Amino acid sequence: MTKWTVDQSHSSVGFEVKHMMVSKVKGQFESYTAEVEATDLTDLTSASISFSIDVASINTRSEDRDNHLRSADFFDVENNPTITFTSTSITKDGDDYSVTGNLTIKDVTKPVTFSVEYNGKGTNPWGVEVYGFEAEAKINREEFGLTWNAALETGGVLVGKDIKIKVELEVNPAD
């Protein structure tokens, strides 16, 4: 098996959530590591995938909101500094995959399935083979202990329950 690492300058780990039931807040994590081990990245079914995300690196373009998300109301970064994902099974349907694994947020681990699209492979200007993928999953944040919310005077809540996780990856052979 070959080990692959994520090229962070060409990748992102992001999310979006409903705000006030009328719009979406989008954000990303600036610091994370990922490892992919596979015999052939054109067929992910033999792969092993793992992620570790530095929760303190959250960025929603609002310092006050980011600090609130880091607090005990949400991620409680002081006691839960990382989010992790480890694949447990991968199935293929055409060029697309379902990657199921264990997602851990705030010491709560639940199975989550990502829909993954294989974007292809190429050779960068330095002669290194690279592969591209896009992945998406939806989770209920309350199932992971992220339960803070505020009722709105007009009805509804400030923060939606469903979080859409979006990952774009470019991977290179590990050195």
Rank of each mutant, 00 (worst) to 15 (best):
G101Q: 06
E78H: 08
T104D: 05
N119F: 00
E134V: 06
L44F: 05
T42C: 01
F144L: 06
I163A: 04
T104N: 13
T154V: 13
I139H: 03
S52H: 01
A150F: 00
V25W: 07
I90D: 04
V22M: 14
D7I: 08
D64Q: 14
L69A: 09
Y118M: 02
K18L: 14
T91Q: 11
T154R: 12
S50Q: 14
F75G: 06
G14K: 05
V128T: 15
A151K: 15
T109E: 13
N140G: 00
Y97R: 08
H68K: 12
D7H: 07
T100Q: 04
T33W: 00
E168S: 11
D54I: 09
N124L: 04
H68I: 06
Y131Q: 05
P81Q: 09
E143S: 09
G101F: 03
K92Q: 15
E129K: 14
D54Q: 14
V36F: 12
D64C: 00
W148H: 14
G101K: 02
W148M: 11
A137E: 03
N149S: 07
E142W: 00
L103I: 06
I83F: 02
A135I: 05
D107L: 03
V157D: 04
G132A: 03
K18P: 00
T82M: 02
S50W: 03
V112C: 02
K161E: 13
G101S: 09
G127A: 09
M21Y: 02
K164P: 00
S12A: 12
V128Y: 04
A34V: 13
W4G: 01
K121D: 14
T82P: 00
L44I: 09
I105M: 08
A174P: 01
N59A: 08
G155K: 11
H68W: 02
I53C: 05
K161Y: 01
G94N: 15
E153A: 13
I139E: 02
K106T: 10
V6G: 05
K106V: 09
L69S: 07
F75E: 08
G155F: 07
G101L: 09
T33N: 12
D76W: 02
A34E: 10
V22R: 07
T5H: 05
G160D: 11
S62D: 15
T88V: 11
E37R: 11
Y118S: 10
S31P: 00
G127D: 10
V22H: 11
T39F: 00
P173L: 13
D96W: 02
R141Y: 02
P173S: 11
V171T: 09
N140H: 05
Y32N: 09
S31V: 13
T113D: 01
F51A: 13
W126C: 00
D107H: 07
A137F: 02
M21E: 15
E129V: 14
I83D: 04
S46C: 01
L103N: 04
T60R: 05
S23R: 10
Y118G: 03
L44C: 07
V13H: 04
S98W: 00
K164V: 14
A135E: 03
W4A: 03
V157I: 13
E142V: 14
S12V: 06
G156H: 10
Y118E: 07
T147Y: 00
S98V: 00
K161R: 14
D54A: 10
S11F: 06
M21Q: 15
F133G: 01
S62R: 11
F51S: 08
A56K: 15
F15Y: 06
P125Q: 11
G156S: 11
